[in-house]
Design a protein around this nucleic acid. Structure first.
Lengths: 290, 290
DNA sequence: CAGGTTCTCTGACTAAAGTCAGAGAATGTC
DNA sequence: GACATTCTCTGACTTTAGTCAGAGAACCTG
């Protein structure tokens, strides 16, 4: 297994990485080119640039000066906070960035060129899989305030999906609720799954002293299903319930959520009698927390 | 399409490339680490090292000196030719190389770690596909003397495979032959397909003035089938026949070679009456060369 | 054995990449 | 308004990476 991964790493850094450097670099040193690219068309704060590229602040400053001297970039003070500075591209800078873009396209095409259409198809599918699964590894699950915009976004998507999938509308304010104060420490906790900084899933735990903890509002964005994020999220939620002192966890759910139910069953959840009267639910599950 | 490739390149250079550098690098600068690795357990000639890593001779010399100063490498004169020098690892060098190995393994494991077994499986399959198809792009088809060891190797594999596949033995010296002088310029040409410097396929053309050219001995190693190398080789052979003045090309083949026949049919070859009495053949094909 | 080749090394460079310790301005906090 | 914090810049570095022009030894060819 590890061997396969290493062979892959080798080929890919050779064929893609090395070429990438030369293609992208072109005239300009790599550092500058990457920076130019990363600034993007809309401009970008220096601290974000540094964070994304992992650069020293002095170094970044110098690189930007060099780009500014070439007339590609303009650095100006931020409007809200005048300590943070914002880099933005001049027309010449946009032009150069477009050239980088073209070279990147060429590189991509050069990888596809020697293949027939069948092989191309297969390569693209395989690349898609690798990309999704590798980035799944970079997903992060963090506790977040239930009223944070990312949490709210996930919740609204969750509700929208429930309504899309089932005949009867779902109203989160009726039945077994998960109001902000119920899923905020110390009463409970709300988690968001982030992928590349974007929220792509959520889940919450409601602690009940001396009674089973409840797991609620578990949702994974359709675009990232099949990457194992649901499993990881559920593990995290169970751990949270266990850390809160519960020996047993409860989930009530609806049979329209087939993927989620499959996951629950796979991971040791068993069906039990209804333990509440959530009108939307038609399946009640329970798990003993190791 | 190009977008998919670019997304892939981005993720992969980020997740694999960047990590790779730090993992591999460790204490030692990347250049030295790569060199140390590439020397291998059995030692290696400097010129091969340079060729494989694409380094300047002066630079290589200096890197090796630095490794030698650290007691990891010993450079000595070659035994056959004392101009070429051979680098080999000391016990300490082998030790350090093993550490690189371990780090590389760790990197690979860190990519797999966050995934469940199902995802792992899929990632590995996808990586395998990407690896094969990307490296297929790097394959090279070159004209080679039919008595060159690589050509001889391919021919023997070709004959072995025919014998393995069919009931009656195949004797290349009987029937429609392809003797060295018949497939060596100017009478014809012999091609070898190279992948990472290894011969993985062959094919030959026999020119006949004012008569159809013959395509012979076409073979692709089983390990690299499905990568489109056969198609590329056939294109090259047809081009060679056309450049030799032929308007029509002939192939005689055996129905046991199903993959090859599928390729021929896909690319415009049509069945015709037997145009020779090759005892082993049972299918005769022809194509008009654009 | 003379003369050309091949292979490697040395010295003398340059450019890119990156680090670190302050200095200085803008902002938040008590 | 004093004080700490945040964010960026400057100057003074180091380390990698890489290039180029010879010099010199070993080898091959006639």
């Amino acid at each position: 297994m590890v061997d396969q991964v290493r062979r892959f790493n080798r080929i890919v850094t050779e064929r893609v990485g090395a070429l990438d450097d030369h293609f992208l670099g072109g005239e300009r040193p790599l550092g500058e080119a990457r920076l130019l690219w990363e600034i993007g068309l809309g401009g970008c704060e220096l601290r974000r640039l540094r964070a994304r590229l992992g650069l020293d602040s002095g170094y970044t400053s110098r690189l930007l000066h060099s780009l500014e001297a070439d007339g590609l970039v303009k650095v100006s003070a931020g409007r809200e906070d005048r300590r943070v500075r914002v880099a933005s591209l001049t027309p010449a800078g946009r032009h150069e960035r477009a050239a980088l873009d073209r070279r990147s396209d060429e590189l991509a095409r050069s990888l596809l060129a020697p293949l027939g259409s069948g092989q191309r198809e297969r390569l693209l599918t395989a690349m898609h899989d690798v990309e999704r699964l590798l980035s799944a590894g970079a997903a992060q699950i963090t506790g977040v305030d239930p009223e944070h915009p990312d949490a709210q976004y996930c919740l609204s998507e969750y509700v929208a999906e429930l309504n899309r999938r089932s005949e009867r509308g779902f109203d989160p304010s009726v039945g077994a609720t998960a109001l902000p104060h119920e899923v905020r420490p110390p009463a409970g906790e709300f988690f968001v799954v982030y992928l590349h900084g974007e929220p792509v899933g959520c889940g919450a735990v409601k602690h009940h002293p001396d009674a089973p903890a409840e797991i609620k509002r578990m949702w994974i964005a359709p675009s990232v299903r099949g990457l194992g994020l649901g499993r990881r999220l559920l593990e995290r939620l169970e751990a949270c319930a266990r850390d809160g002192g519960a020996r047993i966890a409860h989930i009530e759910t609806s049979s329209v959520l087939v993927e989620a139910i499959a996951l629950y069953r796979r991971t040791g959840w068993v069906e039990v009698h209804a333990f509440n009267d959530e009108p939307f639910a038609d399946l009640w599950l329970e798990k003993a927390l190791g």
